[in-house]
Each structure stands twice: as structure tokens, then as C-alpha cells.
Amino acid sequence: MERALYTYGVIMLMAAASLAGYTWIDWAQIDGDGWAVWVQAIGSITAIGAAIWISRRDQRRRNAEALVIAKVSAASITFRIASISSDLKKLVATFDSIHKIDGSPNHFFDSLVVLKEQPSWDPSELALLAPLPNGCAYKVAGGLDRLATAIRLIDAAVKNEKIKWSNDFRRERAGIVSFTLNEAALSFERAAEMMQAEIHGHTSPYE
């Protein structure tokens, strides 16, 4: 559609220029130098139009290539993203329980080990997902940010002596951790769903 509109615009511009030239210019009075000027002007306009067309064509090609790379990148991490979400939901339930009725300090230590074992991706890798619709890359990045925040919160909690004897401290910290992990889990879950929708036809072993 965009290409058709661009072509239509070029044709209309050339038609308008031709009509104006035919109407207002006394072609019989133009000498050799005048013709040379006109030929040069038409050549310049044609060159500009060609340059614009080539630029837009190349941009469309680059966009198509970037989308292919994005889909391949998504195919390589979608199930891992979904797995992270699943693991985090289990920890959310654990910390939510601690927040409500308290629990062993060991839950904090064990959860920290699980969270630090989760896979991660740097911004340059996530940027490859940017051409996908609905901001998949941003949701994965947001999930990783919340995951890192939860790790810092738990790490600070286990280094505090209150973790061993204060149930109020454990419950308060567990509430904060539960909220942070829940947001991370939701971000990863949504990202996995959107990426799967984009790549299912390419990655499904049944199609």
C-alpha cells in the first residue's frame, strides 16, 4: 500500500510538472542552451526520485531482514522465558505465604539460589527482538530488571541478622519480594505468549 501511494505521488508530480511546462513555457523560443538547462533539470529531478525510491526500497529490505532476525531470536528463547515465569510463580507463592503467616529463613536462602540460576540476556541481545510487535523486547527487559531487583532484596535480607529471629522482618521483606517477583513473572509470561504467537507457525513440530 505504501509503495503504491509513493508511485502514485511520483506520477502525479511528474504530470503536474509536465502540464505546467506545456502551459507556461514558450517552447518555440528555447534555444540550444535552454534545452540543455531543461534536460539537466529533468535529469536532476529524475535522479532525486530514483535516490528516494532506492532509499525506501533498501529500508524495506532492512526492516524485513530485522524481522527475520527478531523471529529467530524469539524462537531461541521463548520456552526459556516461559520457564522463568513458571519458576517465579512458585516463588511468589512461597513468599506470599511467608508474608501472611511467616516461614523459615531457609526459604530466602533457597530462593536466592534458584533466582541466581535463571538465564539472562544483555540489552544488545534483547534489542534484536525490537521489530516484533507489542513490545516483546521491553517486557523481557522489564522482567529481567524486576528479577534482578528481587535478587538484591533477598540478598540484603539474608545478610541481615533479623532474618533469623524476627518474624516481622521476614514477613515484611517477603511481601516486597513477592510483589516484585510477581511483576517479573507476569512480564515474562506476557512476553512468552506474544513471541510464541509470532513464531508458532515456524517452530511447531506439528506444522
Rank of each mutant, 00 (worst) to 15 (best):
M1N: 07
E2W: 06
I11R: 01
A15L: 00
A16E: 00
A16C: 02
A17V: 01
A17H: 02
S18C: 09
A20M: 05
W27I: 14
G34F: 03
W35D: 04
A41H: 00
A47S: 07
I48P: 05
A51F: 12
I52V: 07
D58P: 10
A64V: 04
E65F: 02
L67H: 06
V68N: 15
S76C: 10
T78G: 10
F79E: 15
S83T: 08
S86V: 07
L88S: 06
K89L: 12
I98H: 13
G103K: 00
P105M: 08
H107A: 13
H107V: 02
D110S: 14
S111L: 02
V114H: 03
K116T: 01
P119T: 06
P123K: 06
S124K: 00
L126E: 11
C136W: 03
V140P: 05
D145M: 03
T149P: 05
A150F: 10
I151N: 07
R152G: 03
A156E: 14
A157H: 07
A157K: 01
N160V: 02
I163R: 03
K164H: 12
K164S: 15
W165R: 10
W165N: 15
R170K: 10
R173V: 03
A174T: 04
S178Q: 11
S178C: 06
T180L: 12
S187H: 03
E193P: 07
M195R: 01
Q196M: 13
E198Y: 12
I199K: 15
H202D: 13
S204M: 08
